[in-house]
Structures are given as structure tokens and as C-alpha cells.
Design a protein around this nucleic acid. Sequence first.
DNA 1: TGGTTGTTTGGCAATATAACCAAATGTTCC
DNA 2: GGAACATTTGGTTATATTGCCAAACAACCA
Lengths: 106, 106
Amino acid sequence: MTPEEKKLLEAKAKVLKALAHPTRLWMVEKLADGEKCVCEFVDAVDADFSTISKHLSVLKQAGIVVDDKRGKQVFYTLKVPCVMNFMHCVEAVIKSQAETHAALVG
Amino acid sequence: MTPEEKKLLEAKAKVLKALAHPTRLWMVEKLADGEKCVCEFVDAVDADFSTISKHLSVLKQAGIVVDDKRGKQVFYTLKVPCVMNFMHCVEAVIKSQAETHAALVG
DNA sequence: TGGTTGTTTGGCAATATAACCAAATGTTCC
DNA sequence: GGAACATTTGGTTATATTGCCAAACAACCA
């Protein structure tokens, strides 16, 4: 494996890692509907606002979202909307896994 | 958020988390070409075989791969091939991020 | 049976992640 | 300038992940 290939793998892993958290995934799904203010997340989730902020920061650093400060508020948007496309595949994995498990149990 | 929605988010996050590691991602990419023996990974990666085995176990638990023991060897296969589809999107994220970064620098 | 090979499991130390609280920052309004 | 609001940052603790070593297991061969 060349250093370039290794770097690319690490970059990809970073993006996936950013998505690999229930709260962040939920945020991304919300953002698929369009721009959202940080305050909307704070209101909707039962977590400290600093926690929300840090999660958004992870998504931003991974290049998944962009932020836009307007007045006192900060708005976040999905930078690369295709992120949502692969959720269908993730769901397929889950479904397949559930079936396997059911088969083992039953 | 209902408990069901929460559970689904956690399940999705688990799948993504399983993919969110350079070595595991590399394995998945190799498996996209078809079934591979554990020994092939061991030969190709500069890591202990126990490490390789544990990574494969993570992918298996997430429902991404299935294993098949034949004789002394164990073969792994991608269970849900669509996993590869979203790599294109992940690459798009990286590219977009690189451009943003370049724009900031230049 | 005993040795060899291929793979998994258990245990441990190092590192990374997550969540909370408190404090700092930046923006608006007076 | 100072108060109030929205968000980020720093610090700390709890928990999870990673990777190595050693040991266990399983399958084959002599």
C-alpha cells in the first residue's frame, strides 16, 4: 500500500467516523431537509448545548457540513448531500443483519 | 424521538462505525473484488494477525461481511455489496473538503 | 498421537471519544 | 459600555477502541 493510498483510506475513515454516532447521524438526517440553526438541535436533543456544538464541529471538520453565522445564530447545511444516499445501503445492512439474527434464533 | 427511531439510529451508527477504520475500509475494498481468505489480509498488512482477526470480527458483527470456514482457512465475503456504492460519495466529501481547504490556503 | 498451520480469544496498556460543567467569545440591543 | 443571548472552547472524568502479546482452538498431516 502506497502512502497516498494509506492517506486516502484515512481520509475516508474520518468521514465515516464523523457519521458514526447516533446524534450526528440524526443531525445529518435533519440537515437533509435543509439548513438548520444550532438552536433547533439544542431544543430537540436532550443534551448539553456544548455537546451539540462539538458534534457539529466534528461534522464540519470532516467536510460534511458547512456553517454560516448570521447575527447571533449559526446555521448549518449539508455540504455534500449525497451523504444521504448511502443511508439506504446502511439500512439494507441492518435489515440483512436482522434477518440473519432471526434465522439463528428461530 | 421515539425509542424505535433511537434504536435505528444506533444501528446505523454501528454499521458506519464498523467501516470507520482505515484497515477495515481497506479490507472491505478488497472484499469488493470477491471472497478473501484471512491469510491474504495477514500477508498484505503490517499488523498482527490477531489485529486483523479482530477487525474482521467487527465487520462481521456489524453485518457487513460473512465468514465461511473451509479446512484450516476462513474466507470472508461482503454480505451487502452496496456498501461500496457510497464510497463514491465519501470520496466526493473528501474532494470537496480538499477544495475548501485549498481555497482557504490559496 | 503429536506437530504444524491458520485463526480466534483473553488480557493489558496506550490512545481516543463522549458528555458534562464552567468559562470565554461574539453579537445584538439598550 | 454593559446586559442578554447563541455558540464555542477548555477541562475533567468515564468509557470505548486499538494493537500487541500470549494462549487457546480447530483442522490437517506425519
